[in-house]
Nucleic acid binder design. Sequence first.
DNA 1: GCTAAGTCTGAAACTTGTTCTAGATTAGCG
DNA 2: CGCTAATCTAGAACAAGTTTCAGACTTAGC
Lengths: 207, 207
Amino acid sequence: MTADARPAAPALTERQEARRRRILHASAQLASRGGFEAVQMREVAEAAGVALGTLYRYFPSKIHLLVATMQDQLQHLHTTLRKRPPAGEDAAQRVAETLMRAFRALQREPHLADAMVRALTFADRSVSPEVDTVSRLTTAIILDAMGLEHPTPEQLSAVRVIEHTWHSALITWLSGRASIAQVKIDIETVCRLIDLTAEPGRETGRG
Amino acid sequence: MTADARPAAPALTERQEARRRRILHASAQLASRGGFEAVQMREVAEAAGVALGTLYRYFPSKIHLLVATMQDQLQHLHTTLRKRPPAGEDAAQRVAETLMRAFRALQREPHLADAMVRALTFADRSVSPEVDTVSRLTTAIILDAMGLEHPTPEQLSAVRVIEHTWHSALITWLSGRASIAQVKIDIETVCRLIDLTAEPGRETGRG
DNA sequence: GCTAAGTCTGAAACTTGTTCTAGATTAGCG
DNA sequence: CGCTAATCTAGAACAAGTTTCAGACTTAGC
């Protein structure tokens, strides 16, 4: 039911788990201040109270660190959303509402959003597993909003396109090339794809 | 009619124009070999036969350089496409065909694609004007394929979403998280939005 | 408690993007 | 031609991500 994040994490000790959390916390904190550039590995290490080498043992690159930070934040969001699910009439509305809620959360911490999203789209192949985890989490959130347990391939395509739009629209907003209103329009526009792929007469069986 | 690229370029001399071209050529060459990482400013400068300081006078950062490289390549593509426009029945087909043609071009130089696309999405506010130019060029290419001179706001939204999908799908392909087939499906999926925004009975007035 | 293996620390070193400087070259102009 | 301002060159210097290493500390097994 729940998406398992780490495939073969070799069981960290308590102190190691604490270190990991301190690192992620420091990362998010620094990112919240000044975005991607403000997350400097030496500063993260110092703020987390670990040596630079240790930081690199936990997260093999700055990109890995920030993608893990995003994973963390997304998990929070997912939990929050499950507590208060979107209330829209049809699937498209609920997905749009969900994404707009996430967007508003990001607007509260635009620098953090900058660091996480830039890392996510800049990641190369060496970060693929971690980026994939983020992607699966995002997919899960969207499917939740749609109220689907067993989506058709067509619906999965629509969800992928929605994710593409979501990431890229965030990028344009973060770099100041699109307004908040424009991001909203883009999200609503792409969500119309959901109506296209909905099989008529087959409503959500969600209780 | 044609999109003007440089707003206030202070009229380069012939030797300067030649230098600029040598730099862009070196950039594309190095990018073709090894992607984003292989474009090292010192190497670009050496390959182009200019001093490092000069390179930075022409392009104030590696990102600026790669975005300019993309601008260059897109201009080629636009010219090519105008010579052999897509032949599909309706607008959605023509746009999908156009993007797939561009995609095949990128597949021939995957490393170059990597460098350009990663730079484009990683660019921060300081590169906004240049990224915007690329975006306008892309929009022009898509509108050409649709055969529209005066798109409605709704249609522009669809085009923006298509661009979002295009960029983000490329990213997933470049980082090995999506197959060529999947990119094709995503493009075709998002192009269905065009049908949604087409006003019935109002066909292209293209001669 | 003792020891071997693994982990963490502190610090230096290396890489590549970026900046800076002093002197040489070039362009435009009288 | 000779002057002046702008541009270009070579190279050092700096910044931040990443790697490396010797020695101190933890952990697990005995």
